[in-house]
Design a protein around this nucleic acid. Structure first.
Lengths: 227, 227
DNA sequence: TGTACATCAGTGAACGCGCGTTCACTGATGTAC
DNA sequence: TGTACATCAGTGAACGCGCGTTCACTGATGTAC
């Protein structure tokens, strides 16, 4: 039936590249959109620089198709970020769990944190340096992956206190905030200012760990204003 | 000559609000553009969210007029940032100079740094949390205000070493990076996550100063891997 | 076994919008003769 | 004193572009009778 010149089975330039999902497998597109959006978002590290149109093109589908699975661009970006936060959390938790030493575990967490940021600067920019909504769009969704990741750090500090490795007077929340903001500042600066004359990164992380872990372990109170 | 219905001297709705500068005072518009751009940029804290058109409207002039004084949007944004960095540097240096104590000066610098960030979150986002170029567009312009600000911190550390307040073995660059990234991380997190259950900010800054200044003053080496 | 119908997975075109930048121009003002 | 001219400080319209989202639609596939 088809003439020699007609090749309807080959993709035509400009035509969608993706075969329509079979009946009942419409949800497959949702997963493909998430994957494509993640690829583009971590490439640019900026959700405002990634358009619905570019995500649709990456999938091989037209822009309106996105709205079959996500209510808005914001909802799609949030879904991607939640997945990325879970990956970040897994990397840090995994590193922390690789030792039983209640001090060394924090050191390994810190190194894994910074390494994640340097290995995946797009992820890190997206998760920690943008202006996205922090809370779940739908309150019924429960804790976000970001909230779980921070809770894991507080738990790690609490364990070190329970095991007697940290001073008894340590406030787990204050200590967690102190360590997190310091390591975040280093990571964010390393990513944002690649032209800065940075010394060896591992030395920087170690120095930071020395400083903070010393304060959490030494019995002597420093000359600070805190009681 | 003018009829009662003609009021040519009053601004008409939609018409430019700004009177044309007198001959020889064309440079005045440059200053007005800088002021307007700074207002809008610190309001949003994001240079991609501020358009040439909105800056022109803020001044009361048409968009092409911007190009009489700035080669591109990038050049205009850079000029604004350089001014903002100078203001930031002045705030921190001023606070540091308010005492002769070589330890207390760092504490005051830290508090002034965080206070600047919280008082001017738009400035801070623009200067430290965006994706702008870090170096001068024209290499002949010499050091940027940002580079001068960091140099001032290194000098402050060096003075504390020279006065014997910091350990002799302290590397001024490493110490400056350590303190800066930590305080930057706290400031950036405070700004980016206003919904986070932050404890008292002054306590956080003090805790951070305690931790870092203790490491720089105590003779005992911590359990770190550094020699 | 055949056929009308419902459902599903998308598409095509358009909505109104804002963007940075360029280009030829205008109209007031000072200057030279 | 009068006037032609140069200069200056801008303007108006347009360039081609991409944006998120909506809406009516299409065409393949399964299902009920």
């Amino acid at each position: 039936m088809s003439t020699p010149t007609a090749l309807p089975d080959l993709p035509i330039a400009g035509a969608p590249l993706r075969a329509r999902a079979a009946r009942g497998e419409g949800a497959r597109l949702r997963a493909e959109i998430l994957d494509a959006a993640e690829r583009l978002l971590i490439q640019s590290g900026d959700d405002t620089a990634v358009s619905i149109r570019s995500i649709a093109a990456e999938v091989g589908v037209t822009p309106p198709s996105i709205y079959l699975h996500f209510a808005s661009k914001e909802a799609l970006v949030f879904a991607v970020c939640d997945r990325c936060f879970a990956a970040f959390d897994a990397a840090v938790e995994g590193a922390g769990a690789s030792t039983d030493d209640p001090i060394e575990t924090h050191r390994r967490r810190a190194h894994a944190y910074v390494r994640f940021g340097l290995d995946h600067p797009g992820h890190y920019r997206l998760l920690f340096m943008g202006r996205r909504a922090t809370r779940a769009l739908d309150p019924d969704d429960g804790l976000t992956a970001a909230q779980r990741a921070f809770a894991h750090l507080v738990e790690a500090v609490q364990r070190s206190i329970d095991l007697g490795a940290f001073r008894a007077g340590v406030d787990p929340l204050m200590a967690a905030i102190g360590m997190w903001t310091a390591i975040h500042g280093l990571t964010a600066a390393l990513i944002a200012l690649p032209g800065f004359p940075w010394p060896n990164v591992d030395h920087l992380v170690d120095q930071l760990c020395d400083t903070h872990l010393h304060a959490l372990t030494s019995e002597a109170r420093q000359q600070g204003v805190l009681p």
